[in-house]
């Protein structure tokens, strides 16, 4: 009986420690996914935090300089639009008018500085 109790206590301690560490870890690593409207609505709280903004790439808004590798475009959810700036080449499958998600920070100038661009990852391809 003693042995069982000790084992049980050990198990509870291990599980509690793990849950504590996991919850602490998740808090620090959560990245919120918001739309351009939500971003503009909470512009001040979102400033300089890592966020994911999802929307449609506004047709005609994409400019890319192959020498400086500066990519700029605007993301919209229909009602609000935010400018995005990215250093690097547009990823494969990135198209104006299509959905894209960018991860980065919302800077003082009101531009999303993207660290990565995620094109909707789906194995079933549907033509526009």
């Amino acid at each position: 009986m003693m042995r069982r109790t000790r084992l049980l206590i050990a198990a509870v301690v291990v599980v509690a420690a793990l849950i504590y560490v996991i919850i602490g870890g998740i808090r620090g690593a959560v990245v919120y996914y918001i739309t351009p409207s939500e971003l503009l609505a909470q512009a001040e709280q979102a400033r300089e935090k890592t966020i994911r903004v999802g929307g449609r790439v506004v047709p005609g808004s994409k400019t890319w300089d192959p020498v400086t590798l500066e990519l700029r475009f605007r993301l919209t959810d229909g009602s609000a639009t935010v400018p995005v700036q990215y250093h690097g080449a547009p990823p494969g499958l990135f198209t104006e008018g299509q959905g894209a998600i960018v991860e980065g920070t919302w800077d003082q100038a009101g531009v999303v500085r993207a660290r990565s661009i995620i094109v909707k990852h789906s194995e079933e391809y549907a033509p526009p």
Binding site: I26, G28, A29, V31, Y32
Partner: peptide, 14 residues
């Protein structure tokens, strides 16, 4: 009803 992701730092750290 909140959309969020848990990034690679979480997985790596643990």
């Amino acid at each position: 009803g909140v959309k969020l992701t848990v990034g690679p730092p979480f997985f790596n750290r643990l």
